[in-house]
Design a protein around this nucleic acid. Structure first.
Length: 247
DNA sequence: AGCACA
């Protein structure tokens, strides 16, 4: 609900202008590790790592992927390649690619990853971190939140299970999303072009007469991630609503 | 915006 996204309309001049303005990012000297930022922060770290792996492993073998969700490190990730040349290829191919609704910002990392230092026998355990109260508190809070979320989830499913078998109106997560209020003339290609930018996309089934569509993803998690990234979005100037399909 | 490595 806080981030509106829109499907570019072909003959909309404003959109064309914006694309031309995209500035080049200056690359740092080559490194085994790619530093990524501008990542969609609503995606869970696990999903993020998995999808980054799928995407980047096409360009060479990956030693590891690091990502954290604390204030300082969220929205960023490190992909460590076995070979620098592969990191280079990946940057060339993937920079600015749409990923979970946002453009990947890729660069070489500023420093060597520990994994690489270890491989070179040059790894020396860093100075023990100076105690940082802010980090400490933040970590505690995010742990607490995680626990709360888990508890909420559990109690929600418990509630759901406790309900009588009368049809309930709660919409449960589903691997398919349901789109409503589509513009009269919308076509599958336009919808597909947009939803395929979210990992795990499978297909769109449009029901033109009803101006609704079903957007199918590999699994519930992928559908959830896509949905989380776009509470509302537009085709032209029409706001389309999305939710899980009913089971 | 934000370059880490439990």
């Amino acid at each position: 609900m806080d981030n509106k996204q829109s499907i570019p309309v072909p003959d909309n001049k404003e959109n064309e202008m914006q694309e031309e303005v995209e500035e080049e990012i200056k690359l740092l000297p080559p490194n085994n590790t790619i530093y990524i930022n501008n990542l969609n922060e609503r995606i869970s770290i696990d999903d993020l790592k998995q999808e980054l792996f799928k995407l980047f492993s096409e360009y060479g073998s990956i030693l590891e992927i690091k990502a954290k969700k604390n204030i300082r490190m969220r929205g960023q990730a490190f992909v460590v390649f076995e070979q620098i040349a592969c990191a280079q290829k990946a940057i060339e191919a993937l920079n600015r690619k749409n990923f979970y609704g946002k453009a990947l910002h890729l660069n070489f990392a500023k420093t060597k990853s520990d994994a690489i230092l270890k491989r070179e026998g040059a790894y020396a355990p860093r100075q023990p971190k100076i105690f940082n109260a802010a980090d400490f508190i933040e970590e505690r809070q995010s742990n607490k939140k995680q626990k709360e979320n888990l508890k909420n989830k559990e109690s929600a499913t418990a509630k759901l299970a406790a309900q009588p078998l009368v049809q309930n109106t709660i919409i449960q997560p589903h691997h398919t999303l349901f789109l409503e209020n589509l513009p009269i003339n919308s076509n599958t290609e336009v919808i597909k072009a947009f939803f395929a930018t979210f990992p795990g996309f499978k297909e769109v089934r449009l029901v033109p007469q009803k101006r609704v569509a079903f957007v199918e993803y590999e699994d519930e998690n992928k559908a959830t991630a896509a949905l989380a990234s776009l509470q509302s979005f537009k085709i032209g100037d029409q706001t389309v609503t999305a939710n899980y399909a009913k089971a």
